[in-house]
């Protein structure tokens, strides 16, 4: 029984029949991969200079070293940042990694609204969603959606008020 992977090197030249049917034309990656340039196996290339890490950069577990350059847009912060940091304790192959990042994105959306409000700005969400384009080019649909939203909201408010009034009546009887 094999319980551990073997790292013992095998010289292909010692394997009976090695390479007798090798055919360089049998290459489904042609032409978008130049195998002729695939000479040095492993991470042996001359590296570019390393970008100074002046912002927090989360690194995939599957990288054994940080790539030479990276983006500096929006470092992780707040609650979403905590979730993102936790997500990067799992590899790219683990669904938890991606599901936690998607969850962090939704939290981050709420953080964005909160940041706007704290900064004294009420976000114009309809404008950010391009309502003007809808008004110009898809007015009937926009009006229909607005009417449905208004109806649903009105019904919800009426139901909530009735429920509150019922609670008050019952409390009065007691």
């Amino acid at each position: 029984m094999v319980s551990k992977s073997s790292r013992q090197a095998i010289d292909p030249a010692t394997v009976n029949g090695w390479g007798v049917d090798a055919d360089s034309r049998n290459d489904p990656t042609y032409p978008y991969r130049d195998r002729a340039a695939d000479q040095a196996k492993g991470m042996a290339w001359e590296r570019p200079p390393l970008q100074p890490e002046d912002v927090e950069v989360l690194r995939s577990l599957e990288h054994n070293r940080r790539p030479a350059v990276f983006g500096v847009s929006v470092p992780p912060s707040g609650v979403s940042g905590m979730i993102r940091r936790a997500a990067f304790t799992y590899s790219e192959s683990d669904w938890r990694h991606w599901l936690m990042l998607l969850g962090a994105d939704r939290v981050n959306m709420l953080e964005g609204i909160l940041a706007d409000l704290i900064g004294g700005r009420v976000p114009n969400i309809p404008a950010e969603m391009g309502v003007r384009a809808e008004w110009q080019h898809n007015r009937d649909s926009l009006v229909r959606k607005a009417a449905i939203a208004a109806t649903v909201s009105t019904v919800a408010i009426v139901l909530l008020r009735r429920r509150a009034a019922g609670r008050e009546r019952r409390a009065g009887r007691l």
């Binding site: 990288h63 790539p67 990067f88």
Partner: peptide, 12 residues
């Protein structure tokens, strides 16, 4: 492989 710290499956 030298452009994206956050993932290996996609480049920068």
């Amino acid at each position: 492989h030298e452009a994206n710290p956050e993932a290996t499956a996609v480049g920068g």
